[in-house]
Design a protein around this nucleic acid. Sequence first.
DNA 1: TTTTTTTTAATGGTTAAACCATTTAATTGC
DNA 2: GCAATTAAATGGTTTAACCATTAAAAAAAA
Lengths: 235, 235
Amino acid sequence: MFKRAKQSRVFQDVVEQIQDAILSKKLAPGTRLPAERDLKEMFNTSRGTLREALRVLEQKGLIEIKLGVTGGAIVKRIDTDPIMESLALLIRSGEVSLGHLSEFRIKIESSLVELATERASSDDIQEMERLLAKARQCFDNQDWETFLQTDEAMHTFIGTMTRNPVFQFVQKSIHENIHRYYRDYLPMNHERTLENLNDFEKIIAAMKAKDGAAASAIIADHVRRFHEKMTGKNP
Amino acid sequence: MFKRAKQSRVFQDVVEQIQDAILSKKLAPGTRLPAERDLKEMFNTSRGTLREALRVLEQKGLIEIKLGVTGGAIVKRIDTDPIMESLALLIRSGEVSLGHLSEFRIKIESSLVELATERASSDDIQEMERLLAKARQCFDNQDWETFLQTDEAMHTFIGTMTRNPVFQFVQKSIHENIHRYYRDYLPMNHERTLENLNDFEKIIAAMKAKDGAAASAIIADHVRRFHEKMTGKNP
DNA sequence: TTTTTTTTAATGGTTAAACCATTTAATTGC
DNA sequence: GCAATTAAATGGTTTAACCATTAAAAAAAA
């Protein structure tokens, strides 16, 4: 029913105070906290304990610590990096497999493309075309590493087009982690590259026509082919 | 192109060594690391620096630190708690709104229920019925707090039924964080409670019939009603 | 003997003071 | 003016001691 009341850990109290100040916008991103030697006085603690608190805040992605005379703890804008780092740990530990990830991707990515199509501005579509053109160039140059990067960028950008940060971070997490395997397990080849290019061309066309259902169907098929190859190779 | 080679931070090196040992299963969950005073000798560092490393590992969810004579750093089984903590930070900071979350939920939850229906064992369905019965009891007793808990447990359990940890953690994250708002903004009332009970009754029936499409349609409607009420009240 | 209480020892948590390494700004010398 | 040097502030690290918590061992009581 109840949890223990007080952890008897001073550094936790310091973490909570600074975290609350950041979350309540009392400390804006970019703000520099006082120097360790000053903070330790404010919190009436030792420097070691204060530093443990700063370490935790840094790991949470709330502050960034810089060296040198103008250095110190700077309040960061909260982003999805810590989530992605934790997800990467789950994957590295084997708790989550590539099969799990790509199964999830089949379900989520068609919904995501549909939403992106509804909300796409003409600028968004231009950006997609720019990325596709870049991917084509990589194909011509046989620069598969940059091709993979551009492929990831296209998927991530579709996430951005949803205007919903939840979709954005899910999409970014999934693709960042899938591409890690991708590079390791799948030697790039021309067929796959062409498949990808053709798929994206069709998706952009559907987006221009505001045909969410069509865009959704194309990406579903695109992802399913990928899933089958991956699970076929890594059962 | 390149990142700076060495951070000149000793504790980072300690973090990486221990993290790698855990991820490569050289240190199994439940293993107790040597005492701080021994570890500091092994890494040839000071206790303060070593403790900063342990703090980071603790925050990453890789170890748990206990007090007392049998205490110390114990290797944890990696789970989704750190991801959910980070997501909660994103939400608290305002980077993610309830509208964002529930829009995502509409898209994901029907896929999730469909998958759960495909994979449901008879034990799973029994557990769902047990949870529904508990929810009914809360309704009779007008115990809305426990009702909300049970509602969350049912949604989370549907995630478990997918047998896919990605769906599980997404479902758990979403609902844990939605219910936080739920409690704050929506005074519980009989209509909503009855709606929820009826929805779950239908979903369980569809699961028994292995009718994923039906189960999916019911949950989609269930979530959509919730989304409309929430976005209506929090525009 | 069994139970309760006390003691003990190992562990993490904290403090203090000093020194090292990095970085930028101020100073110096040309 | 410009380059080299110096100085100062900051985080990073070390050391040595003490405090607080916990569970096992020992002692006392029943």
